[in-house]
Amino acid sequence: MKMTRLIVTAADRQWCEAAAAAMVGFGTSVIACGVEIAVERELAPQETPDGRPGVAILAFAVSGKELEEQIPRRAGQCILTCPTTALYAGLIGGPSVYPKRVPLGKTLRYFGDGNQISKQIWSTGLGEGEPTETEATRYWRVPVMDGEFVCEHDCGRTEAIGGGNFILLGRSIETVVTACRAAVAAIAPLSGVITPFPGGATRSGSKVGSKYASLFASTNEGFCPSLRELTKTELPSGTKAVLEIVLDGASFDAIAEAIAAGVVAACEAVGGDGLTGITAGNYGGKLGRHHFHLHDLMTGREA
């Protein structure tokens, strides 16, 4: 997977969240959304480039080209349009660090119809602790009806991992939902990882492929309680509901840490009487080369 990180700021937290919600909307799965995208975490004013409230957003796509198409399109319709917002690169480093770039203001500047202003800010090695390299960051200032939309020229993209998952098996939907929410809440503060599905979880966990040639993915019969008597089931007895938490992360370690935190939180939330098991889908190794073995991840942890 290819990943980029964006920072959205606004005059207040309300506009910031509204812009971010629009930006990450319909971004649950690369199967049909183009990107898997979600808010990584909220940023305090002192953490953002312009000193205003912000959010960090992570976006993942199967190819760099797809990312380069999706991000400007979403930013143009969701960030540019939202009052008081500004958009910055979230992966710190210019082309020397991330040579492959996702366009932001490079594309959106044309909305200014010739009135846009390009500004470069140079970092130098003049101050204590600053990088010695002299490298400029380009920003675009696009006149809009509330003032100016400020947008960084582009943002780096990098290799990342998508499709990390763990599956909660429970004796009732209420139990699984409780465990699921606890797991997602435990993952939310972690950096470098997102859970792109609604509320962080999906009920439509899928297998790779389908009997229908046009589908890349279809329902995972082995985890459907209603099919347990019809097909080869993977559910322990007493399992009535299953939810899957899918994670995308900047690195193997980020996902591994998030899975472990989620599993611990889920178990602590409902205990052994609620869950019949926790497993993960590996899809016969067809989903990718990174495998997260739950037993290995949980070794040494207590729940």
Partner: peptide
């Protein structure tokens, strides 16, 4: 002047030092 760029440009520690 009403733009987030004002803070981006002027209110950063690197510029304040010089």
């Amino acid at each position: 002047l009403a733009t987030p760029f004002l803070a981006l440009r002027l209110h950063n520690s690197a510029l304040r030092s010089i």
